[in-house]
C-alpha cells in the first residue's frame, strides 16, 4: 500500500481558497459572518497545530494524571464554548453542565478505551484522548442546541406551563413537552449521522485511518464503535443536564423563574 501523501505548506495555504469563497458569500449576502469566519480560520490553524504538538507529547506520556488532566481541560473548554452559544443569565446552568459532562464523558471514554478497544492501560493516550475528544465535541454541540431550546421554549411557553401548573401539574408534568423537545433537538444530529454514515458521508476518523494506511475493515469497526459511543453519550448527557437545568428553571415553590426578555 502506498504511503501517505504529504501536504506542503503551499498546498495547505491553497485550501484557504475555500475560506475566501465563504467570506465572499458572507460579504455579498451581508450575512454578518466575516469576523466569525476569520476568527474561526485562525483558531482552526492555531488550535490544531497546538493540538498536534500537545498530542505528540501526550501520546508519549506514561502518567495517568497528565492524560486525565488534558481530558478535564477539554471538557472545561467545551463548557465555555457552550456558554458562549447559550446566552442565558437568569438560570445557573454552568456548574451542573460541567460536572455532568466530566462524569459522563469520562465513563464513556473509559468504557471505549478500556473495555471495547481493550487497551492497556485503560488510559492509553492514543485511544483515550481521541475517544474523549470525539465524545466531547459531539455532545457539546448537542448540549448547546438542547439548552438553547429548553430556555427558549420555557420562556415562550411560560403561559402554557403555568396553565398546567394552575390545574395541578407539578413542574415535571408542566414542562414535559419542553423537556422532550429539547432533548430530541440535541439528539437529532447524532441520529442523522448514524443514518447517513457510509452512505452520505465518510466519517473523518475512518477516512484518516484509511489514508494513514489502515485496513478499511478495521477502520470500519472503529468507526462503528465511535458512532454508537457518540449517540449513547449524547443521550445520557443531554437527559441528565436537561433534568438538572429544567429543575433550576423553577423556584422552591415550583414557580417559573424565567422572565420574558
Amino acid at each position: 500500500m502506498p504511503g501517505i501523501i504529504e501536504i506542503s505548506v503551499g498546498q495547505l495555504l491553497l485550501a484557504l481558497l475555500f475560506i475566501l469563497v465563504a467570506q465572499a458569500s458572507s460579504f455579498i449576502y451581508q450575512l454578518g459572518l466575516n469576523r466569525d469566519i476569520l476568527i474561526g480560520t485562525v483558531r482552526t490553524f492555531a488550535q490544531l497545530f497546538l493540538m498536534g504538538y500537545v498530542l505528540t507529547w501526550i501520546f508519549r506520556s506514561t502518567t495517568v494524571w497528565i492524560v486525565v488532566g488534558v481530558f478535564a481541560v477539554m471538557v472545561f473548554s467545551a463548557v465555555f464554548i457552550v456558554k458562549g452559544r447559550v446566552k442565558e443569565s437568569q438560570i445557573p446552568y454552568i456548574v451542573p453542565t460541567f460536572l455532568t459532562m466530566l462524569i459522563s464523558y469520562f465513563a464513556t471514554a473509559i468504557f471505549v478505551s478500556g473495555m471495547i478497544v481493550d487497551s492497556t492501560p485503560w488510559w492509553e493516550p492514543r485511544y483515550f484522548i481521541p475517544a474523549g475528544g470525539m465524545v466531547i465535541g459531539n455532545s457539546m454541540s448537542a448540549l448547546a442546541i438542547a439548552l438553547e431550546r429548553l430556555f427558549r421554549d420555557m420562556r415562550q411557553g411560560r403561559e402554557i406551563v403555568e396553565m398546567r401548573q394552575a390545574l395541578g401539574a407539578d413542574y415535571r408534568e408542566a414542562s414535559q413537552d419542553i423537556f422532550r423537545s429539547a432533548v430530541k433537538a440535541g439528539m437529532i444530529p447524532s441520529i442523522n449521522a448514524m443514518m447517513g454514515v457510509g452512505l452520505v458521508f465518510i466519517p473523518g476518523m475512518m477516512s484518516g485511518q484509511i489514508l494513514a494506511g489502515a485496513d478499511p475493515l478495521i477502520a470500519i469497526r472503529y468507526q462503528i464503535v465511535v458512532m454508537l459511543m457518540l449517540v449513547g453519550s449524547t443521550a445520557v448527557t443531554s437527559v441528565v443536564v436537561m433534568l438538572i437545568v429544567r429543575r433550576r428553571c423553577f423556584g422552591s415553590g415550583e414557580e417559573v423563574l424565567l422572565t420574558p426578555r
Partner: peptide, 23 residues
Amino acid sequence: IAAIPPARLRSAVIYVQQTPQMI
C-alpha cells in the same frame, strides 16, 4: 401554603389565567 406541596395546593386552589391557554 409554603408547607403544602405546590401541585397538591394547585389541585385544590385553581387559578384561571387572564388569557385562556389551550393546548
